[in-house]
Design a protein around this nucleic acid. Structure first.
Lengths: 195, 195
DNA sequence: GTCTATAGGCAGATAGAC
DNA sequence: GTCTATCTGCCTATAGAC
């Protein structure tokens, strides 16, 4: 199974998540409806409530799955690469891949809608950023210790800055429909951290 | 008149814009309604349509006014300061002020909702970023020529990166309710450009 | 698990009186 | 300019049959 058919060859609950995930990443949580999912999936709105009782529960599950999946991707980077700078590049590539699918990061999108989200979703969004930043922080600390990176602030502050920069670059690059804009920003960011 | 009473001491059309602007910056364009404005303003929904025929027209006017107002603030920075690095700091302060009001940049918010916006609004959002980046580009070029800044890319690419970084830092800092997070990111950003 | 049917509410918008 | 009244459509959600 490839990423391409992930929306058509799994159980119904999973396919609902797949479709909802894409809709949130493209349109936002407040701009999609159960009707949108039902139409794409070829079942009725009522059936969706069997799998996820309400939009809030669906949304929370969406963020949880996304966080786990992202964590797995980060662990894979750790296995595949040892150089901290290569890890940072791979990190940015994860974002670039999302952008190439004309999507925004799920949690970046939800950060914009943060004030309108149910509390369970708000907490889940912050957990995503916390976990991502914890990973980055470790990579930055390693790079610093090896002399491969030189940070202008604490590893924590630097990690926060990196996440913000990539989310923002993604947000605007998507509006322009220009992935190069993202790549150029990421490239400047990392060159500013190279020792 | 101060910024504090801007929502209560002007003509109705202006007050509608003021309220709508805040609602978009806090909740997003897809998460507020004519009913919200009407309730705050103490008039009926129907009356709003006299001033702005539809939500699309209201939204476009919102972005246009925001762009003009931001341009005026940038011109004021040019008058008040000459040092390019001081201008960059003042630029970031414009963003920080918005964040302190627990708001997101209007156009950063609309960038998240970009795919769902009417075309007139999409174009207006890109115009905002274009004008902002043009101003930054000039400041960066001046800083480069004076030897006060050293850029890792073209002035245009650097300007794009700066806008993305500040928008992203703002987006996430607002979710955490932590303005310091934004300040720390801006500070690292500019220290990386200092010659 | 999926369906039909429907509830109850809110969205953006319009007609026409004042 | 603002109102009342109303329209049409979509939203989330539920009840209950199959």
């Amino acid at each position: 199974m490839t990423d391409q058919d992930e929306e058509s060859s799994a159980g119904t609950s999973t396919r609902i998540l797949d479709i909802a995930e894409r809709l949130v990443q493209v349109r936002g949580f407040n701009a999609f409806s159960y009707a949108d999912i039902a139409k794409e999936l070829g079942i009725t709105k009522a059936s969706l409530h069997y799998h996820y009782p309400g939009k809030a529960e669906l949304g929370a599950e969406l963020v949880t799955r996304y966080t786990i999946r992202f964590g797995v991707a980060l662990a894979a980077v750790d296995v595949r690469l040892t150089d901290p700078r290569a890890k940072l590049d791979a990190f940015a590539e994860l974002y670039a891949d999302v952008l190439r699918g004309q999507r925004m990061c799920l949690c970046g999108m939800l950060a914009a809608e943060y004030q309108t989200l149910p509390k369970t979703m708000q907490e889940a969004v912050l957990r995503f950023f916390n976990e991502t930043e914890t990973w980055l922080e470790r990579v930055l600390r390693e790079g610093q210790e090896q002399g491969a990176l030189h940070l202008r602030a604490t590893p924590q502050e630097t990690a926060q800055m990196i996440v913000g920069t990539l989310e923002g670059a993604m947000l605007i690059a998507r509006s322009y429909g220009d992935v190069n804009r993202f790549e150029a920003a990421a490239s400047q960011l990392f060159s500013s951290l190279a020792a």
